[in-house]
Design a binder for these strands. Structure first.
Ligand SMILES: NC(=O)c1ccc[n+]([C@@H]2O[C@H](COP(=O)([O-])OP(=O)(O)OC[C@H]3O[C@@H](n4cnc5c(N)ncnc54)[C@H](O)[C@@H]3O)[C@@H](O)[C@H]2O)c1
Ligand SMILES: NC(=O)c1ccc[n+]([C@@H]2O[C@H](COP(=O)([O-])OP(=O)(O)OC[C@H]3O[C@@H](n4cnc5c(N)ncnc54)[C@H](O)[C@@H]3O)[C@@H](O)[C@H]2O)c1
Lengths: 215, 215
DNA sequence: CGGTTATCGATATTTTTATATCTATCACGA
DNA sequence: TCGTGATAGATATAAAAATATCGATAACCG
């Protein structure tokens, strides 16, 4: 496929956000020994419009056959390639609190190419503890750890007040991307990628839906 | 539709998703004793376009003053009202695993009107344990608990395979809304609201950004 | 073997969201 | 007291995304 050779298309963000759901359905077909899947199948499973799915799948570069659909294993390979889940990256987790511990314990990351090389925290009570197989390390050693191991990804689960100071260390250490679960907006140089995950946005939408529904 | 306080508008989802971030900034002004905040201020803090912010704020119904901005406490009240964070709701959490425990430990929910009345799990080893002040209860008692206490909200953090069977119980018990953190798509009657939180979508976007940045 | 039909892929249309432009307002400072 | 300029709010434009339409294809069935 073209993607591997260096030509990088620009994919619409809403489409990228749907890819993991597509992948989940397609994989379930694969496990079931089914060789082809149609856009209609996926749309039905997810409650989407089939044209939207077909357009998304077209962007993956996989060609479908009329009356048959798309080859399951081709789609899986293409989607995993687009979202980068076909290669492995090491990551550090900063802030081994409630949410940080949950992420450390999530088994799904390794299947998606993310492996936690270390977990850090400032809290002396937490340092030395083992959380889901990871020993919590002091912040002091973080910068060197990242630099020496050439870690590119940081998952940030510290309180909002501590976010920027933590980010400054990460950037200084040469981190390439920060997946930020704190509500703070991070100031980083242009070369550093950030992805903000604001769980409270989802709660807000949920509550508004509930209110409008129950009138 | 008419309710006691007035007419319920339809708000654009992207706007709703931004409200929590706005609220965070506005509150920080409030704590700092600042009385007015402008759309430009908020836009600068969040890296947004000021016109977008102004349009969002216009939808809240709060009027601004030229050269001054909007009254901080009016905005806070309006936004909290829109996202329903000005009233309290009881919720149950189902699936007290990694992520479920993290959510139980998150102190931010009570400030947003969500209080966990109970946490449930199937795992006999977990039942009876105390997680962040909540005793884990067996699934057996869940339906009655929800019905008797008239609980309207469920937070779902079970594995994907267990999601639908769990949802069926919740719906049967009369739940009004399900905040779903599993990647499964839930089948519910039309009267039940669902909000799917797919963390892997964020990861996908993050990885694609990383890949495109590093070309 | 030939008609039927589910499906793809392309194109067109509509809707939604973001961004740009313009004018009126009014606090502020000269 | 009088400009000045930051800002709201309205309107206009552009961009993005979702949705609808339609012809071409080829597996399937009789
Ligand atoms: N827990 C949730 O369900 C949840 C939900 C939504 C958002 N969040 C956000 O995720 C972040 C973490 O939430 P949490 O519930 O895990 O909080 P938490 O207090 O349990 O965990 C934060 C951890 O960060 C550590 N920490 C604090 N300052 C640090 C620093 N300077 N350097 C390194 N580590 C530091 C603390 O010692 C603690 O272990 C917060 O920003 C919160 O808003 C959490
Ligand atoms: N942990 C994470 O960071 C994370 C990230 C993204 C998505 N998720 C999703 O959240 C969900 C939970 O993930 P997790 O990491 O907490 O898994 P987990 O295995 O730690 O927790 C799941 C819990 O649900 C319980 N459970 C299983 N079947 C049940 C049933 N039928 N009824 C009630 N309880 C049941 C289990 O006993 C367990 O305690 C999964 O769907 C996962 O895909 C988790």
């Amino acid at each position: 496929m073209e993607i591997a050779t260096g030509i990088r298309k620009k994919y619409p963000v809403p489409m990228i956000r749907r890819l993991p759901s597509y992948l989940r359905i397609i994989k379930s077909y694969s496990y079931g020994g089914i060789e082809y899947i149609s856009a209609t199948d996926i749309a039905n499973e997810l409650g989407y419009d089939s044209v939207k799915v077909r357009k998304d799948l077209a962007l993956t570069g996989v060609c479908g056959k009329p009356r048959m659909g798309y080859k399951v294993d081709e789609l899986i390979r293409a989607i995993r390639s687009i979202v980068g889940w076909d290669k492995n990256s090491e990551a550090v987790l900063v802030g081994t609190g409630c949410l940080g511990s949950a992420l450390l314990g999530f088994t799904g990351f390794s299947r998606r190419g993310i492996n936690f090389a270390a977990a850090f925290d400032v809290d002396p009570h937490k340092i030395g503890m083992t959380v889901h197989g990871h020993t919590v390390m002091p912040m002091r050693g973080m910068k060197n750890f990242i630099t020496e191991r050439k870690i590119e990804i940081a998952v940030l689960t510290v309180p909002a007040d501590a976010a920027q100071e933590t980010v400054d260390i990460l950037v200084d250490a040469g981190i390439k991307g920060i997946w930020n679960f704190s509500p703070a907006i991070l100031k980083v140089p242009a070369r550093v990628v950030t992805q903000n995950e604001n769980l409270m946005s989802g709660l807000a939408v949920f509550m508004v839906k509930m209110a409008t529904e129950s009138v």
